[in-house]
Design a binder for these strands. Sequence first.
DNA 1: TAGTAAAAGGACATTTATGTCTTTTTAAGG
DNA 2: CCTTAAAAAGACATAAATGTCCTTTTACTA
Lengths: 148, 148
Amino acid sequence: MVLSKSFGYALRGILYVALLKDEGRNVSIDEIASRLSVPRHFLGKIMKAMVKAGILSSVRGQQGGFFINERTLGTSIGAIILLTEGKNYFSTCLLSLRQCNADNPCPMHNRVQEFRNGLQNIYGQTTIGDLLKEDKPGFINSITTGVK
Amino acid sequence: MVLSKSFGYALRGILYVALLKDEGRNVSIDEIASRLSVPRHFLGKIMKAMVKAGILSSVRGQQGGFFINERTLGTSIGAIILLTEGKNYFSTCLLSLRQCNADNPCPMHNRVQEFRNGLQNIYGQTTIGDLLKEDKPGFINSITTGVK
DNA sequence: TAGTAAAAGGACATTTATGTCTTTTTAAGG
DNA sequence: CCTTAAAAAGACATAAATGTCCTTTTACTA
């Protein structure tokens, strides 16, 4: 697959929390999971990972939940990919070869590198805050209708 | 971006057979699997799928094995991706949203579409024959050293 | 300070991708 | 024919990703 389901859940989850940033409340995992139609406990683990990575915050207890912190809006999509897909996402060889890089390219390497780099740059430059700025009327809807 | 192991096996398998096209013999699954260091039976299924799709040929029995046919060299990498990843590989939404296309784009869609299209075009235009033309001394080696 | 609501944590279950083994079919060669 | 070597087919096994459930910790509230 292009990106894992975990990535989609993570991005939609953090976006949902960020979208509600002016409501002055913490957002519970129950609310997020039900609005995004995503498995509650699985999402919980992913949100927890983002909290652990410091790009989102949470508090336990009554009135607890998730909320953005000083890093959230500046977090790049690439950082979330790193979290869910691991550090080799943009460098794994397309032919599953051991050694494949600019010095020792596989038969596909040079042909696609330009576009892989382009994608990586876009992902690295685009932040949660950037996506929020696109907040058109349909934006919330566009993240709440998940696939399957 | 990031393709399955099955795709890597398929491409390396068909390339290996194509590379030996002038030897005037059929190439057995045992030879391919051992040269590519790929699971024999798993590779067998993938090769069979390519035969079924008509982009490669095979004969059973003694002296049997795989060999290229009139379509092999003109087969695009994209066609093999279609076989191993399914028809939605280039159109699945990056946020795992149900509806995401040019008319109804998700927050990421427009930002990455240029590069996704670029990749898709490269994959669609590049054929097995094109890769063969790169047959430098290290080419066979470059497909035989698989990862993990 | 007891009750409650929330995240965190961990064990278990299911599904999908990957990998292995055995049997069947088929063709060539003696 | 009979043996042999090969792909094809299908059953089974393992690993990784995804999903569910239960318990623990923590903070608010009454």
